[in-house]
Amino acid sequence: MHIKTLSPALLAAALTTLAGCSTATPDTSVPRIGAGEPFTAELNCGRLPISAKGDDDLLLTVGAEQFVLNRAISASGARYVAEGEPETSLWFKGEQAWLVLAGDEYPLCVPSDTIIEPYRAAGNEPFWSATLDGGQLTLNRLNEGESPAQPYMPGETAGEVVTNTAPPIRLQATDQLCRDSMSGMPYPQRVNVRVDGTTLRGCGGDPARLLQGGEWVVEDINGGGIIDRSRVTLNFWRNGQVNGRASCNNFMGEYRLSGEGLSMSSPATTRKACAPSLMEQEQRVLRNLQTLQGFDFDDTGALLLRSAEGSLKARLEH
């Protein structure tokens, strides 16, 4: 646990700046960070939940670790840095924030049910798709064609946006695992679009956020378990890099998400030698990664990495 001393004067100045990022119309359902009163901001950085609490200190909680952050100079928003640990920081821009821990950059941190532009949602039966970019929403429906891009504004609930058209288009996104009914691709949000008295259902958001933001620990390889006390891990980073431990050696490579699945470049490894059984397990892990085809989750939330070799089953380490 990391607890540092924070200057109350610095905190007051930081919170005052952060208050300037608020919208003109206050939303009482959202903590007013920087309003001169205690607040708690709960955010999700991909799969990593964090909490930022302000009163006399700005306290960041990440899993079992806690950091007290000092205000730092920034060109925009409000940036805070852990005292004595310049590679750990939290940078607020409105209700969103960027998190860096020990030099590692995490996915954008947002409240639950947040739409992150550029955003795409789609569904089948009937086919439809919607894109949100630059504050505008475009809807494409089978047999209806593509509607002109329309400005949208926040709706009455989290994750809802509404166009100022007649009739309006209402899009609601909710954080819940959603699988495309044709490709089987997992997405982080379920989406409903209401227009012309019709409700269109589908999935939306960036599938990478289901993988990023935590360390996955492999507990099964091709249905045969894993050697006792051995360790196999994967970390998917927002820059397209993946690294971890293959059993004996560390590895690193690149991963790619497409509309159909997940693939990975041939991983590079260190050159340490271990017991023959551990080296054989490592080769099975690397063959799975080299022939990776897609991913899914089982009913318990475990990650299933499917490959031509079989599958790896992993869980987030908390």
Rank of each mutant, 00 (worst) to 15 (best):
L15A: 06
T17R: 12
L18Y: 11
S22N: 15
A24I: 13
T28A: 14
V30I: 15
P31E: 06
P38R: 10
P38E: 06
T40I: 00
T40W: 01
T40F: 05
E42L: 13
L43I: 09
N44R: 15
C45A: 08
R47I: 04
R47F: 11
R47W: 09
K53T: 05
G54H: 08
G54D: 13
L59P: 03
L60N: 09
L60K: 06
Q66N: 11
F67C: 03
R71F: 04
A72Q: 02
A75C: 10
S76P: 12
S76I: 15
S76R: 15
G77H: 13
R79A: 09
R79H: 08
G84L: 15
G84V: 10
E85A: 13
F92M: 09
F92L: 14
Q96N: 13
A97Y: 00
E105Q: 10
C109W: 13
V110R: 15
R120M: 08
N124E: 14
E125N: 14
S129I: 02
Y152W: 10
Y152D: 00
P154I: 04
N164W: 06
T165D: 15
Q172H: 12
Q176A: 15
L177W: 04
S181N: 08
S183W: 02
S183K: 01
M185Y: 03
R190L: 04
R190W: 14
V193F: 04
G197V: 03
L200R: 10
G202L: 10
C203A: 01
C203I: 06
G205K: 00
P207D: 00
A208Q: 13
Q212N: 10
W216H: 01
E219P: 01
I221K: 09
G224L: 12
G225C: 01
T233C: 05
F236Y: 01
R238Q: 14
N243W: 11
S247N: 11
C248G: 02
N249K: 06
F251S: 00
E254P: 05
L262I: 03
S263P: 12
S265H: 14
S266K: 07
P267H: 12
Q281L: 12
L292H: 07
D298K: 09
A302F: 07
L303H: 01
L305E: 00
G310A: 10
G310R: 06
A314C: 06
